[in-house]
Design a protein around this nucleic acid. Structure first.
Lengths: 234, 234
DNA sequence: GAAGCAGTATTTGTAGGACAAATACCGGGC
DNA sequence: GCCCGGTATTTGTCCTACAAATACTGCTTC
């Protein structure tokens, strides 16, 4: 995956650089960073730019600054684990398997609940979006087209929950998972196997049957998980 | 609840003030903020301090700055909904009922899954923490003591999942919910009613029975929900 | 009259210096 | 040995100046 917009502006670069260093553990927890003046010079930016970056990292819970004491890396329990940047940095640095496991667990937690909530609260417009995503999946002839439509389907279901916390959580998890593989990691031969299950999810949301929707989605994600296992063990 | 550390430093105040304005909708979405120089003067801070605050808000997805165009409020879909500050600002500004509903929904989503995961992956030490929290609940003689032990119990279960994403999500949701009421909103007469259920959760985590733990926790949260309804309709 | 192009003005981005405020640390006095 | 005040160090805040990007204006040209 190519990085888009690698260079936005200076403090953004500094944020990324320091963030990576901290999350990867190269800057140990509890350790003091060099004083601002020194660090700024070492990174060849002005103190102004450095400080703007540090305020952001501080807001993410990664560091803590106090006068005279300096700036130090905070304990992991204070990190905003659900921050998209923090998650991305972890994906880059952590031994993948353990972390992917956690991400997948979160996804498996959200999706069935989302399907149930969508069945309860979806509007007709939202249902229409889900339906058209389903139709795009049915019409897909390439793995790529399928993957795009699949993602759209899941996103539409999440939107239809009318709970922005849920959809936000999904998108954070999803983008982190995207680092490793696409949502539906299927091989090109059988990529359309999951279509009937998607139909069941759609249908039960249409008929406003929360529990049916939950179970259908549940089967989907556990199938998807076992598919992943197969794929990764190859 | 009294605000601790109301004044940490200037940019923190600016962050809070602007964040509130944006999330409450007083600064409309898409609207341009005054240019930095003007806004800084209007808030009686230096441009430097204002900018440090804006970088943080920008990292939270609330605003977006571009040269020549200026800074404008981004659409809600880009906001980091799971950011603790953003959540707190919403709690302050939103008509409560709808939002509380969403928060509760998230909690009900996490906890049973967490109980199941804890049953699968808890260490003996983590189990011991859960047990002692349970014992504190059993020993509680006041509503306050009960509430503290109850929170400790749930936190211990979350920790025992060994999935920091899950416990992080819980703590974010929980602190937002705390704005409205304590975890177990029970009246003083029957506050110990839920004790046997907590025992079931503990016991099934001890015996490593994920599905039993999930169901037990499920009953607990749905009981707690109906209790809440009763309480709020009074 | 329309289309393209260059110049200009405006706004954020970056730099660097100066001082304020907080506070850990050291040293002196009791 | 303990307390207390001074001092040095580090972040916090303010200010000014300029760089870079880019929307807009108006001119030129076909």
């Amino acid at each position: 995956m190519v990085k888009l917009a690698v260079v936005r502006n200076l403090h953004h670069q500094v944020i990324q650089e320091l963030g990576r260093l901290i999350v990867s553990g190269e800057l140990a927890i509890g350790q003091n960073l060099p004083r601002e003046e020194v660090l700024a010079e070492r990174m060849s930016v002005s103190r102004t730019a450095l400080r703007e970056a540090m305020k952001v990292l501080s807001a993410k819970g990664l560091i803590e600054s106090r006068q005279k004491t300096g700036t130090r890396v905070r304990e992991e329990m204070y990190w905003n684990q659900l921050d998209a940047d923090v998650l991305a940095w972890r994906c880059e640095s952590m031994p993948t398997d353990a972390f992917v496991e956690k991400l997948v667990e979160m996804r498996e937690l959200i999706e069935p609940a989302a399907a149930a909530a969508a069945a309860r609260r979806r509007t007709d417009e939202q249902l229409a979006v889900i339906e058209s995503a389903y139709e795009a999946m049915a019409a897909a002839e390439t793995l790529d087209a399928w993957a795009v439509a699949d993602l759209a389907f899941h996103e539409a279901v999440l939107r239809a929950t009318n709970n922005e916390l849920m959809s936000s959580l999904f998108s954070v998890i999803e983008s982190a998972l995207g680092t490793y593989f696409v949502l539906s990691a299927r091989n090109s031969a059988n990529f359309k196997n999951a279509l009937p299950q998607h139909y069941k999810v759609y249908e039960s949301i249409r008929r406003r049957h929360p529990e049916v929707a939950r179970q259908a989605m549940n089967r989907m994600v556990s199938d998807s998980r076992s598919n992943l296992k197969k794929q990764r063990s190859r």
